[in-house]
Computed example of a mutant assay.
Amino acid sequence: MNLPENHFKRALREGRQQIGLWCSLPGSYAAEAVAGSGYDWLLFDTEHSPGDPLTVLAQLQAVAPYDVSAVVRPASNDTVLIKRFLDLGAQTLLIPYLQNADEARAAVAAMHYAPDGVRGVSGLTRATRFGRVAGYARKAAEELCLLVQVETGEALERLEEIASVEGVDGVFIGPADLAASLGHVGEPGHPEVVAAVEDAIRRIRIIGKPAGILTPDMAFAQRCIEIGTLFTAVAIDVGILARGTEAMARQFNVN
């Protein structure tokens, strides 16, 4: 049995724009409902959602038949959490709140088996198709993709050193936490925050790494794409549900 190809990683390497949807609803039913909507990738979040490895497992299973890539965000840059999601079959991880190159190197190490890293070895996981992928341990790294999240003023000062760490496949800018870090909590659209995000995207592209972002602001999403983001999340499932149902209620004057 062959190792599944990571189409998201291939697309980034080829410079093809990938439009994504952020999934904070932990259910597999919701994940399957949006899997066929036409997005290139879905982000299954466990940092700011009730999600955990077991709910992510169900989501990965639900979307597997669809032409969409799954990206998983662990709750933190934790070696054990990273190992568990990789063993579940996640091939692309977005690691939140990295502050420096050492933390980026730790994330890289967690993605790889020894002697290149510290990922624990198990031959009977979903990632190995329960032992059916011949040579999985030797080939796994070819299809794994590590995205790191930069979202504070301190991290932006070290952006080049973080992005340049070997094994980092892309850098994601987090506008919400960045806004808080810059003194504008709850205001990701503040001019200072917008300027910092745009500058960061340009700097990441100069280094030659793919840049990513999440923004439900359609105009700003298009602006980020024009500047150079290659993986761009443009909506959040919870936001679509909450705002969409509110809009429908208003049409019928529901108080």
Rank of each mutant, 00 (worst) to 15 (best):
M1L: 13
N2C: 00
F8T: 07
A11Y: 12
R13M: 04
E14M: 12
G15D: 11
R16Q: 13
Q18G: 03
C23K: 08
S24M: 09
A33T: 12
V34K: 09
G36E: 09
G38K: 03
G38I: 04
Y39C: 03
T46V: 11
H48P: 06
P50V: 00
G51N: 10
G51R: 08
D52C: 11
L54Q: 15
L54N: 13
L54H: 14
T55V: 01
L57H: 09
Q59M: 13
Q59D: 04
Q59A: 10
L60A: 04
Q61N: 07
V63D: 03
V63H: 09
Y66W: 15
D67L: 00
D67P: 01
D67H: 10
V68D: 06
A70C: 03
P74C: 01
P74Y: 06
P74T: 01
A75E: 02
S76H: 15
N77S: 10
D78R: 14
D78P: 14
T79I: 07
V80L: 13
K83V: 03
R84V: 12
R84I: 05
D87W: 13
L93M: 03
P96S: 10
Y97C: 10
E103Q: 15
A107Y: 01
A110Y: 08
M111V: 05
M111S: 10
H112L: 13
Y113Q: 07
D116Q: 14
V118Q: 03
G120F: 02
S122R: 12
S122Q: 13
R129M: 14
R138F: 01
K139P: 02
K139R: 15
A140P: 13
A141Q: 13
L144C: 11
Q149E: 12
E151A: 12
E154W: 00
E154C: 02
A155S: 15
S164I: 07
E166H: 07
F172E: 00
F172A: 09
P175V: 00
D177P: 06
L178Q: 03
L178I: 04
S181K: 00
L182G: 04
G186H: 14
E187A: 15
G189D: 12
P191M: 09
E192L: 05
A196T: 04
E198I: 08
E198P: 07
A200L: 10
I201M: 02
R203P: 00
I206C: 08
I207W: 05
I207E: 11
G208E: 03
G208W: 02
L214Y: 11
T215H: 05
P216M: 15
M218Y: 14
A221G: 07
Q222G: 13
C224F: 06
C224T: 10
I225C: 00
E226D: 14
G228F: 03
G228P: 04
L230C: 01
A235D: 11
V238A: 11
V238T: 06
G239Y: 10
A242P: 05
R243W: 11
A247P: 08
M248A: 06
M248T: 01
A249S: 09
R250D: 15
Q251T: 15
F252W: 09
N255V: 07
